[in-house]
Design a protein around this nucleic acid. Structure first.
Lengths: 183, 183
DNA sequence: TTTAGTGGGTTCCGTTTTGAAACTAACACT
DNA sequence: AGTGTTAGTTTCAAAACGGAACCCACTAAA
């Protein structure tokens, strides 16, 4: 399977990665969240080649993560701004950065810290449950087959459309999901 | 700048991506969180080539995200398990999947849902402040220069070590950080 | 006791993707 | 007329990738 086909999987992570999973893309978005908007600024801050940057920015615009907004005529110049969909990636960036800080920092500590203006404190992001507010950790969370995957399974496929309907689904699915099917 | 050098940046996101930012790697981890542990299972579920899978698994083991545990002798066989460092990526996977569900789903809805056993409800992950518990959103969070970046700036570098000390730092940094320096 | 099958790789080779550098276009400034 | 800025496009060699074939150490079946 080619990387460009991963968005065919019935999986939100695969679909998300098909948009933001390319090299440089999440770093471009990191800078976008820090206020960078123009081609040359992205290029300087990232150290990415012009060619690659053009390609990535275009893909993000195509996928409505960024939008091109004209900021001058003559010569026409556009800047790249986060859309609502793009702003919604804030959590991904924060979570990834927090992991990096916790596991990849040297003695000097965190490169960047965050102040939560709601309470005024320096804060770290914590994942909590939308229903009860308590932390969501690996041991307290169990995945379940959702409607979209159930529909795909009923149609005879696994996470991948190309799995034929007569195939034994169970070895195309991860253990936790197989367990769910057995119940 | 080559992709393999991004871990030189004084940035947690860059460092995190230097470990988990390669193609397939986050999908491997997705399956690991769903209970997959063996080479052949990863390969079947992901559709990735053996060559690539070998390489990615080795890199994850090198970086202590996975560990190899022998599960039989004769012939010796090993399985790949999430370490503490790997388990700590749970938030990244959840957040990314949640974004994918919100922005990349078709009518069928979520491929996978999560039950929070602490409260028993189906739940979505919400990012909240470690200090006050309220939501952390783009408008309520401001980045600040942390100790590690401050140290790099004092030494004359930007996020990139190769920036010489006499360079004008301000155009090597994103706008929000420049604003902080000005204050 | 050959034969087939399984798990976990390695090798090879043609195709894609990438990075660096050079080049272009459309202007503004001096 | 000459120089600079922004935002690209082109070109080309190097690196990464995907798929298929091959390999090795076993086990189980015929």
């Amino acid at each position: 399977m080619r990387w460009e086909d991963i968005d065919q999987q019935v999986c939100s992570i695969a679909r998300a990665l098909s948009i933001v999973g390319d090299r440089w893309t999440l770093l471009i978005l990191r800078d976008a969240f820090l206020g960078t908007r123009r081609f040359e600024d992205f290029r300087r801050q990232l150290g990415v080649s012009r060619h690659r940057l053009t390609e990535r920015l275009n893909k993000l615009v195509e996928n409505q993560v960024l939008e091109k907004v004209q900021y001058q005529q003559r010569p026409p110049r556009y800047e790249y701004r986060l859309t609502e969909k793009g702003l919604d990636l804030h959590g991904v960036i924060l979570t990834l950065g927090d992991w990096g800080t916790r596991w990849c920092s040297d003695e000097a500590g965190a490169p960047i810290e965050y102040r939560h203006r709601t309470c005024g404190h320096k804060a770290r992001p914590v994942l909590s449950c939308s229903e009860c507010g308590e932390p969501m950790e690996p041991k307290t969370v169990t995945p379940e087959i959702g409607p979209a995957l159930q529909q795909a399974l009923d149609a005879g496929a696994g996470m991948f459309p190309e799995v034929g309907s007569e195939a034994d689904i169970s070895d195309k699915l991860p253990p936790l999901l197989v367990k769910l099917l057995a119940k």
